[in-house]
């Protein structure tokens, strides 16, 4: 039971992270389209931001690990 609830929690965390990473990716592509010469800089910032958002999602995963065994 705890496991399933934890899984639901992980899923919710993934929704948030998905929206976040989607926003980051979309804005980055917009930015690159607007300023193709800054593509490498935007890519760098994008990856860092994506990693940070992903980190937040992984906190959710870790909390769901807490429910395991």
């Amino acid at each position: 039971m705890i496991g399933s609830i934890a899984a639901l929690g992980a899923g919710l965390a993934v929704i948030g992270a998905g929206i976040g990473i989607g926003q980051i990716g979309g804005k980055a592509v917009e930015g690159i389209a607007r300023q193709p010469e800054a593509a490498s800089k935007i890519q760098g910032a994008m990856i860092i931001a994506a990693a940070l958002v992903e980190g937040a999602a992984l906190f959710g995963v870790v909390v769901s690990f807490l429910g395991l065994r």
Binding site: V62, F65, L66, G67, L68, R69
Partner: peptide, 8 residues
């Protein structure tokens, strides 16, 4: 829980 408990 075991997974997130560091072992000494």
């Amino acid at each position: 829980m075991e997974l997130v408990t560091p072992e000494i």
